[in-house]
Amino acid sequence: MLQITDLAKYYNGQPVFSGLDLQLPAGRFQVLLGPSGCGKTSLFNTLTGVTPADEGTITWQGQTVPHLGSLCAYMHQKDLLLPWFSLMDNALLPARTRGRDMACARVLAENLFSRLGLSGYESHQPNQVSGGMRQRCALVRTLMFDRDLILLDEPLSALDAITRQRLQHLLLLLQTEFAKTILMITHDVDEALLLADDIFVSSSLPMTLIRRIRLNQPKPRAFDDPDLLHIKADILAHLVKGEAV
């Protein structure tokens, strides 16, 4: 379980977020939903140790840690593939940087390539494939971190609608097949409703959590589910209220 208690970050004395409390049970897909510019990425930067927290504690599996940098895998909205490496070499980067057994890592990556529909493209350069394939390769690389906690920073926001829908199904694999604990940030309400077990709705700057919604609907979900439509209306109302805060 990941527990964040009273976390705060200030820039020039102004709070980006303060007094932030979050409890993320293991194996669940949690989504932090908020308007653009509400400080979601700042929260991720603080969680991963890119910028230090000013107040608060982070506890992972019962241990207090300064940040989650060495404990989590991370997927950015940009695919961040290195253009000088093939797709396979990009996927193998986490293994290579940590000096793991490359033969074992390659077998694992090949399985993931097959699972995510990238077989046959292992030796392609990133600029030779579509945006969706690049993002799937980034997803393989995220899994190759081999960590139980995954932070997803709007990973699908730069994709077209069809590619995004396909990748949403693949993101569910992280939870169902690989039993990962996931925290994703997004401003897309529909995406949150399709993927999340828990949705945390945040206000605009300074970011505060104004609503927590637990979704018990089985996955995969349909957009026209009346329950989801009802929840969507509730979330949108809170987002509007949060913008006004």
């Binding site: 930067n45 940098g69 060495s70 991370y74 961040l80 986490p94 971190f145």
Partner: peptide, 8 residues
Amino acid sequence: TLFSLMGA
């Protein structure tokens, strides 16, 4: 940041 998180 990505490389830092990979522990490189």
